[in-house]
Measured scan of single mutants.
Amino acid sequence: MAAAAAAGAGPEMVRGQVFDVGPRYTNLSYIGEGAYGMVCSAYDNVNKVRVAIKKISPFEHQTYCQRTLREIKILLRFRHENIIGINDIIRAPTIEQMKDVYIVQDLMETDLYKLLKTQHLSNDHICYFLYQILRGLKYIHSANVLHRDLKPSNLLLNTTCDLKICDFGLARVADPDHDHTGFLTEYVATRWYRAPEIMLNSKGYTKSIDIWSVGCILAEMLSNRPIFPGKHYLDQLNHILGILGSPSQEDLNCIINLKARNYLLSLPHKNKVPWNRLFPNADSKALDLLDKMLTFNPHKRIEVEQALAHPYLEQYYDPSDEPIAEAPFKFDMELDDLPKEKLKELIFEETARFQPGYRS
């Protein structure tokens, strides 16, 4: 834990890192770190609560700039109880001085990944967590956004079992017609939660990839272990087919990539493993919904509104309290091709509203 900075004593240090967030945020305490930044909790002297502050230093890398800009653009436009918001952003007053960006968010005690390492969940908890994931996802999908990296560590939890989806750095506007060349190379989302079509096709992607990830998360809540822990690309596919069985001819016809289709045709026939054999203690309604989410063919996979209306979630289902976005989200430009200098300018502009004396 960093010592509390005395008023006016300059930035606090946390594990050798400068955290320049005073005077409003003090009493910093280390939480963890990701690929390009550290997260601390801090005391907000204005709202009198502890908050989470993520320090991001992305400006050396085009990919990190892209992810940072995506996350900020999306989260500043989203407003939903099951999606983490941005409360404040701290950065230098000029673009030349801006080396880091500090993002202030609600402090959540833990995440689903940490929880599943230590606790076996009751059916009631599984049901409530799944409902909140789908409630947040309904809003995301209504904005025409794909999260693309749903996994237990991106689901934040607090002691009252509130759940918030975080990390929109890989999110995209849904565009089933656009052929994202190089899709697989830039697709760094965790393999275990990846839909089979991501490994088999490169053309376009749809909201059904997020539903697949939610199915993987439900299976993990039922058993405290990942359902498809593939060691590499082909191993991942083999794990999936080992449980779902061989795809039907109709399902194979959806695979545009001939090499991928021929690979699947070359494999020995596998039978589907019954879900109640894998999860003998699970609620039968939970397994019915799991089956509809972990469907090989993305066109037959359940959609988020149908999933919310499934009998497993009937005690929570309330369409009048499951809000959607006001308007579909649009990125003005494809960020993939922009140089990091341009992305830095866009991050600077996007964060201006939090600067003292800002006038829109």
Rank of each mutant, 00 (worst) to 15 (best):
A3T: 12
A3P: 05
A6V: 11
G10A: 12
E12F: 12
Q17T: 09
R24W: 01
R24H: 13
N27L: 06
L28F: 03
S29A: 03
Y30M: 04
I31A: 05
G32I: 13
G37L: 01
G37E: 12
V39Y: 11
Y43C: 12
N47R: 13
K54T: 06
K55I: 15
S57M: 14
Q62V: 09
T63W: 09
Y64H: 15
Y64S: 15
T68D: 15
R70M: 02
R70W: 02
I72M: 13
K73I: 14
K73A: 11
I74V: 08
I74Y: 05
R77K: 03
N82D: 11
I84F: 14
I84R: 14
I86V: 00
N87M: 02
D88T: 02
I89V: 13
A92R: 04
A92C: 04
P93T: 14
T94F: 13
E96P: 06
V101H: 03
Y102L: 11
D106M: 02
D106W: 02
E109M: 06
D111F: 03
Y113M: 06
K114G: 10
H120Y: 12
L121K: 03
L121E: 09
H125I: 07
C127P: 08
C127D: 06
Y128V: 02
F129Y: 14
F129S: 06
Q132N: 07
G136N: 01
L137S: 07
I140Q: 09
H141I: 07
N144A: 05
N144H: 09
N144S: 00
R148D: 05
L157E: 03
T160E: 05
C161A: 08
D162Y: 13
D162G: 00
K164W: 04
I165Q: 05
C166N: 07
D167R: 02
D167G: 02
L170K: 07
A171C: 01
R172M: 10
V173Y: 08
D177E: 14
D177L: 07
H178R: 12
D179Q: 05
T181A: 00
T181L: 12
T185M: 06
Y187L: 02
A189K: 01
T190F: 04
W192K: 05
N201P: 05
K203Q: 09
Y205M: 12
T206D: 03
I211D: 02
W212P: 10
V214R: 03
V214Y: 06
V214A: 05
G215Q: 07
C216I: 03
C216L: 10
L218D: 05
A219N: 06
E220Y: 05
M221K: 14
R225F: 07
P226E: 04
P226F: 02
I227T: 06
G230E: 00
D235I: 06
L237I: 09
L237T: 08
N238H: 14
H239S: 09
I240T: 00
L241F: 10
I243F: 14
L244I: 05
S246L: 06
P247I: 07
E250S: 00
N253Y: 13
I255R: 02
L258G: 08
A260F: 01
N262Y: 14
Y263F: 15
L264E: 02
H269K: 07
V273T: 00
W275D: 01
N276L: 05
R277W: 09
P280H: 14
P280R: 11
N281I: 15
A282S: 14
K285C: 09
K285H: 12
L287I: 11
L290P: 12
K292F: 07
K292M: 15
M293G: 01
L294M: 12
N297Y: 15
P298K: 01
R301T: 05
I302T: 00
V304H: 07
A307E: 00
A307P: 08
L308F: 03
E314T: 06
E314D: 13
E314M: 02
D318E: 14
P319S: 09
P319C: 02
S320C: 11
E322W: 04
P323I: 02
I324Y: 07
D332G: 10
E334F: 01
D336Y: 14
L338D: 05
L338S: 08
P339Q: 15
K340N: 13
K340L: 13
K342F: 01
K342G: 08
K342Y: 10
K342T: 11
L343D: 12
L343I: 11
L343V: 10
I347E: 12
E350G: 00
P356L: 12
P356K: 10
P356I: 08
Y358I: 13
R359S: 15
